[in-house]
């Protein structure tokens, strides 16, 4: 009987806390106010694990065909560079204004251990999944609604090379012909 009371009480308290959070308006949704470190860490963990799980069984096709860099490059320039930047560019309205901030895909991420095949495959399939499905409650759109898998793999192939490109190489690869 006592345990039941305690259970009911804690349930009521939790419900109260949730109700206060939802209805009080205390939660700040402004994009120019960062999350607290704890919230940021939790959300990041959720995103990383969610993407890894969802992308686990995706087969990575052969991405070495140079033609992929041309299709993927032109698409990247027109659909992604405004948020994810390009060689020689360090900020844009969207890269500064969005929160969570779009990562700069023109520089290699520090977490990547380059030249590791497993890692290469995992990055490729995660990128494919993210481009196709987007990320909820962030600025990252789901491009799979309007682009077939072939187009998306071409962008994945392009992203592999992007951090190594000079501004001149980028210009040639991404120009419309």
């Amino acid at each position: 009987m006592k345990t039941l009371k305690i259970l009911l009480l804690s349930f009521a308290l939790t419900l109260g806390a949730v109700a206060i959070t939802v209805y009080s308006g205390f939660v700040n949704v402004a994009a120019d106010e960062p999350h607290s470190d704890l919230v940021y860490l939790l959300l990041e963990e959720v995103r990383i694990n969610s993407i890894a799980k969802a992308a686990k069984s995706i087969e990575v096709p052969d991405l070495t065909d140079p033609e992929l860099l041309l299709t993927g490059g032109a698409d990247y320039e027109y659909m992604c560079s405004s948020c994810h930047l390009k060689p020689g560019q360090h900020e844009s309205d969207l890269s500064l204004g969005l929160y969570p901030q779009p990562p700069n895909l023109a520089i290699s991420s520090q977490t990547d251990t380059a030249n590791d095949t497993d890692n290469f495959e995992a990055t490729a399939r995660n990128n494919f999944w993210v481009i196709k499905h987007g990320i909820k409650a962030s600025g990252m759109p789901a491009w799979g609604k309007t682009h077939d898998d072939q187009r998306i793999w071409a962008m994945v192939a392009f992203l592999n090379q992007l951090p190594s490109l000079t501004p001149m190489q980028y210009q040639v690869l991404t120009a419309i012909d």
Binding site: T64, D65, P66, E67, L69, L70, G73, Q161, S164, L165, M168, Q169, Q171, V172, L173, A175, I176, D177
Partner: peptide, 22 residues
């Protein structure tokens, strides 16, 4: 923009590199 091909230095390009090939 059109591709600016005038600055390419072919002598420095490795023709096995997918970026150079593209």
């Amino acid at each position: 923009e059109k591709a600016d091909c005038s600055k390419m230095d072919h002598s420095k390009m490795n023709m096995k590199d997918p970026v150079a090939m593209a």
